[in-house]
């Protein structure tokens, strides 16, 4: 659905995108992560036909974004970072206008249905100028959804929403992502972790990592650390764990807790649990202490590790 190959964009002498290549398939939600100025918005603007690349190619919904820009724009729903709204229009008028631009029959009915989708039907006839930031964000999302696009490109879709609205919007995106392609940029890394099938991390115009959030964690960390807690005295617990092949860096952290590591891809937790119980301890907790997506993001986008590709 989205195929990007060697995308380059120069703003004068400054290179904003440097050889970006990735793809996104139907039924996939791809997260685009990166610090401010990394090139996320520029990439998205190229993909929706707002501006052409300096070099490289991008195919969206089967059409070239430069040669067949109009066809791409018919099939893509786009929510820009700054939600573009006409504040002198009501939500319904605005969506009807957007539906008319897309030649949707029964545009008023469709506008109302889309308002229901983002839970704004009660404010259909209110002027957008009177809306809160969260409501404006939802109207913006509604205009991106109004033509039921094959590809949805969302630049920071949940910014400005309250926690309940964030959950609602994420559910809308998840629902759409089941049978269509969604590319979204976000600064909220847990959002990427929760709703994205795949994550692209972009820094200084280049993609520095691309994988599922889980794989990124294991590929970067190399080993998995686990906290194990028992009820009562843990004397001799470290020795019991040490007997299991593959465990290392065993450390007693307090009277009831021991931490240990094992190599990524060689999960020894079932064996450890069995050994601990057989040794007569009451196992009450065993949880991984992984590198969070936040830590991965910082690791990949900090200056000293820029360009590092796992």
């Amino acid at each position: 659905m989205i195929q990007v190959n060697g995308l380059i964009k120069d703003y004068g002498a400054r290179r904003a995108l440097n050889d970006i290549t990735f793809d996104a398939n139907q039924g996939e939600i791809v997260g685009f992560l990166g610090p401010n100025g990394a090139g996320k918005t520029t990439t998205m603007r190229i993909l929706v036909g707002y501006m052409p690349p300096t070099d490289g190619a991008a195919i969206v919904a089967g059409y070239d974004v430069v040669e067949e820009s109009l066809e791409v724009r018919k099939r893509v729903g786009y929510l820009p970072e700054t939600v573009p709204l006409y504040t002198d229009m009501t939500a319904l008028e605005y969506l009807k206008f957007m539906a008319d631009l897309r030649h949707i029959p029964d545009s008023k009915e469709r506008a109302y249905e889309t308002l229901e989708q983002v839970n704004l039907q009660d404010r259909a006839n209110s002027y957008i100028g009177t809306f809160s930031k969260g409501m404006r964000q939802r109207v913006g999302l509604a205009q991106a959804l109004i033509h039921r696009p094959e590809v949805l490109i969302l630049d920071e879709p949940t910014i400005g929403l309250d926690p309940a609205q964030v959950v609602e919007v994420r559910n809308v995106i998840k629902e759409i992502g089941k049978d269509r392609t969604v590319l979204l940029s976000t600064h909220i890394l847990t959002e990427a972790q929760n709703i994205c099938d795949r994550v692209l991390i972009i820094n200084k115009g280049s993609i520095v990592a691309e994988d599922t959030p889980e794989n990124l964690q294991s590929r970067l960390v190399g080993s998995q650390r686990v906290i194990l807690r028992v009820r009562g005295d843990s004397d001799g617990l470290d020795a019991a764990i040490k007997k299991v092949k593959g465990t290392r860096a065993i450390e007693v952290t307090d009277a009831e807790t021991v931490e240990f590591e094992f190599s990524a891809g060689q999960d020894v937790r079932p064996q450890v649990a069995k050994a601990v119980i057989q040794a007569g301890y009451e196992l009450i907790e065993m949880r991984p202490v992984g590198m969070s997506l936040e830590e991965i993001f910082l690791e990949l986008t900090q200056d000293n590790s820029a360009g590092k590709k796992p």
Binding site: R45, V48, G49, Y50, L70, R73, K74, V76, Y78, P80, T82, V83, P84, L85, Y86, M98, L101, R102, Q143
Partner: peptide, 14 residues
Amino acid sequence: RTGTLELLLTAPIR
């Protein structure tokens, strides 16, 4: 100025 041009330039209109 308001950013709505981005909306129009990404709509399927010439």
